[in-house]
Design a protein around this nucleic acid. Structure first.
Length: 155
DNA sequence: GCCAACGTTGGC
DNA sequence: GCCAACGTTGGC
């Protein structure tokens, strides 16, 4: 079992939207490295749900991976901002898994709180220049964020 | 294959 | 709104 971090701009799709919908497919990621991480995801993996471009930015909850990565439907949709003219049904370019809502934290674990933690110094999302919207997280870092959040979920 | 120009991300 | 970091594009 692996652990991940998924960024979302709450203006686009927030933890509250996710809590309401219960499940979604993680479409719209258009970065090869992020895509490759999604292809590594397995059913049952857990992910930190992170608000970027938010006030404050930080981890707001937990998601569970419920399918292997499959073709992102918007790459074929000419009207979508995520349309990719180079993608075809026979050879799709972009893939994403289904995810299910697990929990919303009572309080956000803000980016500044993450940065203040000595135990999280090496966490990928905190490294300089890390703009990837999908990142692997170690089990130790994942558990520490859950501890900081007072999460109901345990790992 | 180099690299300048350009676009995007995302914290601040 | 600024801008650093970094990915992508396309001319050569």
């Amino acid at each position: 079992m692996n652990f991940w971090l998924l960024k979302s701009e709450p203006g686009n799709y927030s933890i509250d939207d996710f809590a309401r919908e219960k499940a979604t497919d993680w479409t719209g990621v258009r970065n090869y490295q992020a895509r490759n991480f999604m292809k590594e995801m397995e059913v049952g993996d857990l992910a930190l749900f992170y608000h970027s471009n938010a006030e404050p930015p930080g981890v707001t909850g937990i998601a569970k991976i419920t399918s292997l990565a499959k073709p992102d439907r918007f790459q074929f949709d000419r009207k979508s901002p995520y349309y990719d003219a180079k993608a075809t049904r026979d050879s799709p370019i972009w893939f994403c898994p289904d995810i299910a809502f697990v929990e919303k934290f009572d309080d956000i674990v803000s980016l500044s709180a993450l940065r203040a933690s000595a135990k999280l110094k090496e966490m990928g999302v905190l490294q300089k220049g890390s703009r990837l919207s999908v990142l692997p997280v170690s089990k130790a870092h994942f558990s520490e964020v859950l501890r900081m959040a007072g999460a109901r979920s345990k790992v």
